[in-house]
Amino acid sequence: MKTVNVHGGNVHKASRNMGTSLEHILDFSANINPLGMSPAGTESMKKHFEEIIHYPDPELHGLISTLSRVWNMPESYIALGNGAAELIYGICRLSNVDTVYVPAPGFSEYAHAANSCGLHVKEYSLTYDAQQHTFMYNLDLLMDKMKECTQTILFIGNPNNPCGTLWTHRSEELFHICKENHHYIVFDESFIDFVGDNFSMREYVKRYEHCVVVHSLTKFYAVPGLRVGAMMGHPTVIEQIKSSIPTWSVNHLAQVYGEAAVLDRAYIESTREFLGREKEWLYTQLSALNVFELVKPSVNYILGRLDSKYSFGDLQDYLYSKSILVRDCSTYSTLGPNWFRIAVKDHDTNVTLLTVLKEYFQNYRR
């Protein structure tokens, strides 16, 4: 199984290599809200900026209280961390677990977190339908695997990164199997805000003690540099995971930003409305180039594969020369050469990408 720890979004390294400033780089490798930060959150940070002379609130009272109201979740069911990744590492430190099941393709940090805790890592593959251009979860396969073992953590991306697959199964049988066999079932919903609450599994944590939902505030609310993530689960599970998270993990500005941003309804609705249009437009425009096999997007990124007569490495180098970053997905298990992922950006930036792509393919010489 491939475990190369490579992420998109290393714009700082690109800036150093290119000898240019960050604002001159078009970073399609990081899946961040194209509308930028929440205006309400930004104003809150300005208002509370001078309070950074104090330690952050270790109880994170304001943000947890606000999330409790927004998500209709008891405060004792919520914990926060320095981004979703820190919470994933904390989850892998749960007691009486020896194996972690991760989706393929899937977020690499699941496996890296498990390896850091000395756990065995096993993959389960999503099914790719080439005619429908989509990856799908195989519920029967998952249930069979969970019946064959005990004391595991099952990670499910919802939507899954990098393919955007949503978990549409509401089968109670999987939860009962996990309960009977002492498994934890973890839904990583780092991108769920882009599609809305109707697709979230967070209500299941109230019904199943072994269910945990991870939520990122850095993707939708566009603050990957602040780092703030949340998780929901039964208080006994939450308290155990929290014991692995350092005090003051979430800084003060991240707390006050998040508290205001999650209540910024105009910003939330504008983001969903814009992305609903823009992701379809970009998907259509990229498809019209007739060189890509694309997975239909559900959120703010598009997974695709370049026609085998081209080299994605050459294309990536060309884009790099134009200060454009895209995500090479060849290291993802079950994908391989010429697979890539691009984020959906603002319209003008997306137009720039398309213009450069057209130039490349028009001038291409084998």
Rank of each mutant, 00 (worst) to 15 (best):
N5D: 14
V6C: 01
G9D: 11
N10W: 05
H12R: 14
K13N: 12
N17S: 11
G19P: 09
E23G: 00
E23K: 10
D27S: 06
I32V: 14
I32K: 04
G36L: 07
M45F: 10
K46Y: 14
K47R: 11
I53V: 13
Y55H: 15
E59T: 11
L63V: 14
I64R: 13
L67S: 01
W71C: 10
W71T: 00
W71I: 05
W71Y: 09
M73Y: 01
I78A: 02
G83N: 12
G83R: 13
E86L: 15
E86R: 14
I88D: 01
C92H: 03
R93M: 07
R93W: 01
L94G: 06
S95E: 15
V97R: 03
V100Y: 07
P103R: 05
P103C: 10
G106Q: 02
G106D: 03
G106S: 03
F107A: 12
S108W: 00
A114Y: 10
G118A: 11
S125V: 07
S125N: 11
L126M: 15
Q132N: 13
H133N: 11
N138D: 15
L141K: 12
Q151T: 04
T152A: 15
I153V: 11
P159W: 08
W167T: 04
R170I: 03
S171M: 07
L174E: 09
C178A: 05
E189D: 08
S190G: 12
M201E: 08
E203R: 09
K206I: 02
R207K: 14
V212G: 02
A222Y: 07
P224K: 08
G225K: 05
M232W: 01
M232L: 07
P235T: 04
V237T: 13
V237W: 03
I241T: 00
I245G: 06
P246M: 07
Y257H: 08
D264C: 11
D264K: 01
S270Q: 15
S287W: 01
L289I: 06
N290W: 03
L294H: 06
V295C: 15
K296R: 14
P297Y: 04
N300T: 04
I302L: 14
D307E: 09
S311E: 09
F312R: 00
D317I: 14
L319M: 02
I324G: 09
L325F: 02
S330D: 12
L335I: 05
F340R: 08
I342P: 06
I342D: 00
T349Y: 08
T349S: 14
Y360P: 09
Y360E: 00
F361G: 05
N363R: 14
